[in-house]
């Protein structure tokens, strides 16, 4: 069964249409990367998938049920979104911020404790645990927010379907942490969670996502495997740049070189 079915979806949160005719589906374990120029509607699409922006046309079904018909709490157990920026300005400790990810669950303190340890290990935030969130650097905050979102979906027992939505999860992270974070995302996907992430790094997307979706001015311009999508004509038509495409020496995925 399809985990997420998006059929001709459109959204116009402030009257003007920002998304139109988005059409794709995901199975458990799929990872989809959303790419596109600035202002193409990537974040809007992510928030629409999370139910934060109402549809103006089409449908989105999660686990066979229309997204808007999910009860609030059940939906929060099934899908989590990492925003691009978080406005938290109160001095919570890192542990407290991550524990907020367990808000929709009633799994008990000891279970939550174990999940906290697991996600802190997965995001390398264990040594920050007693620090105040407001005193962290941008990259550290990003990892803590990611740990919070992972904690929300960490346990397969919490929901039959799980959908993780990440808006630029590697923004501001060094290479080592980028890799660590993407490994954690892979791990969740192998456990049956579907993942949709907005990425800016084409090579990271080619390496880590099973499919790519390219948005252009709110429309779905391309959808397919990395090899199908990352072509010279696509870059010329949508990003208006000339690139060279070779293949990765180790795993054969497309490698994009700006020229």
């Amino acid at each position: 069964m399809e985990l997420l079915t998006v059929a001709h979806a459109g959204a116009a949160p402030w009257g003007t249409p920002l998304l139109a005719d988005i059409h794709f589906s995901l199975h458990a374990g799929d990872t989809l990367a959303i790419l596109g120029p600035n202002g193409a509607g990537k974040s809007t699409l992510l928030h629409t998938l999370a139910g934060g922006i109402d549809l103006s046309q089409g449908t989105i079904a999660l686990g066979g049920r229309s997204l808007s018909q999910w009860p609030r709490l059940q939906r929060a157990r099934a899908l989590a979104l990492l925003p691009q920026q978080s406005p938290l300005s109160f001095p919570f400790s890192v542990e407290e911020v991550i524990q907020l990810g367990r808000t929709p669950h009633a799994s008990g303190a000891s279970e939550d404790r174990q999940i906290l340890e697991d996600v802190m290990a997965a995001t390398d935030t264990a040594r920050l645990r007693q620090r105040l969130y407001t005193r962290l650097s941008g990259g550290e905050r990003q990892r803590v927010q990611l740990a919070r979102v992972l904690a929300q979906l960490w346990r397969a027992a919490d929901s039959e379907v799980r959908l993780l939505l990440l808006d630029e999860p590697t923004g501001g992270l060094d290479l080592e942490h980028q890799r660590l974070i993407m490994d954690s995302v892979d791990r969740l996907a192998r456990g049956g969670c579907a993942v949709v992430m907005v990425l800016h790094d084409f090579n990271l997307a080619a390496n880590r996502a099973s499919r790519l979706l390219v948005l252009d001015e709110g429309r779905q311009a391309r959808l397919g495997t990395p090899a199908e999508v990352l072509t010279k004509t696509m870059f010329h038509d949508i990003f208006r740049v000339q690139v060279e495409i070779t293949s990765h020496p180790q795993n054969g995925t497309p490698l994009v070189l700006p020229s």
């Binding site: 934060g52 609030r72 709490l73 899908l79 979104l81 978080s86 406005p87 907020l100 990810g101």
Partner: peptide, 20 residues
């Protein structure tokens, strides 16, 4: 109290955590 804690993250974040 718990809802207020989640709200400190931001309104849409609180919504995604299942808060009305």
């Amino acid at each position: 109290a718990r809802r207020l804690n989640a709200l400190l993250l931001g309104e849409s974040e609180a919504r995604y955590l299942g808060i009305d």
